Computed example of a mutant assay.
Amino acid sequence: MSRKILVGYDESAASRRALDFAVDRAKARGEGVLVAHVLEWSPYSFLTPEELEQRHTRRQEELARAEVRLMKPAIEQHAQSGVELTSLVKYGHVAETLCKLAETEDVSLVMIGRNGQTGLSSRLFGSVAGTLAQIAPVPVTIVP
């Protein structure tokens, strides 16, 4: 298969616009689209052994739920586009995980929607789009 455009997807209006734009670009470029959703998971280490045991089960349930509720409808929406779409659900820090995927999945471009965070909170805490623009190993398109 050819290279892919990686889309960070969270079912927000911005991520849906990014996916639509990525499918259009992929069709024009003869590439596929990899739609990725990243679940952030707290790395707390003060859990009891019982809680740690249950954690793995909860993680598997969350991954399966995200695949069915988020990814499957997103892929089905573009099924008739003629573009090969695949999906992945991962745990981790969103920007770092998307960068790792860009390195390991033969990605030529990352697309992400801008959720409109502005002002002081954006400058203090940063944003996924801003972080990706700075650290991604491939070009990043931020879709408004």
Score class of each variant (00 low, 15 high):
Glu62Val: 08
Phe125Cys: 10
Gln117Tyr: 01
Arg59Tyr: 13
Ala102Lys: 08
Ala74Glu: 00
Gly92Glu: 04
Lys90Asp: 12
Ala79Gly: 04
Leu109Asp: 05
Tyr91Cys: 11
Met111Arg: 03
Val110Leu: 09
His93Gln: 11
Val107Lys: 03
Lys72Glu: 06
Glu67Asn: 02
Ala102Phe: 02
Arg58Lys: 14
Glu62Ser: 13
Glu76Trp: 02
Leu101Gln: 06
Gly116Gln: 12
Ala79Arg: 14
Leu124Val: 14
Val107Glu: 04
Ala66Pro: 04
Gly130Lys: 07
His78Trp: 13
Arg123Gly: 07
Gln80Ser: 12
Pro73Gly: 03
Met111His: 02
Ala66Gln: 09
Ala95Lys: 04
Leu109Gly: 06
Glu96Tyr: 04
Thr104Tyr: 06
Ser81Leu: 02
Ala133Ile: 10
Ser122Ile: 01
Met71Pro: 01
Ala74Ile: 11
Leu70Ala: 01
Gly92Leu: 01
Arg123Ile: 08
Tyr91Pro: 05
Ala74His: 10
Lys72Ile: 06
His93Phe: 00
Tyr91Val: 15
Lys90Tyr: 03
Arg58Trp: 14
Gly119Val: 06
Thr118Cys: 00
Ala129His: 10
Gly116Pro: 12
Glu103Ile: 11
Met111Val: 14
Leu124Tyr: 03
Gly126Ser: 08
Asn115Thr: 10
His78Pro: 04
Cys99Met: 04
Ala74Asn: 11
Val83Thr: 05
Ala79Asn: 12
Leu101Pro: 07
Leu88Thr: 09
Ala133Met: 15
Leu85Ser: 00
Ala64Leu: 15
Glu67Ser: 07
Arg114Asp: 14
Gly130Trp: 05
Gly92Ile: 12
Glu96Met: 03
Val128Gly: 01
Val83Met: 05
Glu76Cys: 00
Phe125Gly: 14
Arg59Ala: 13
Gly130Ser: 05
Gly119Thr: 12
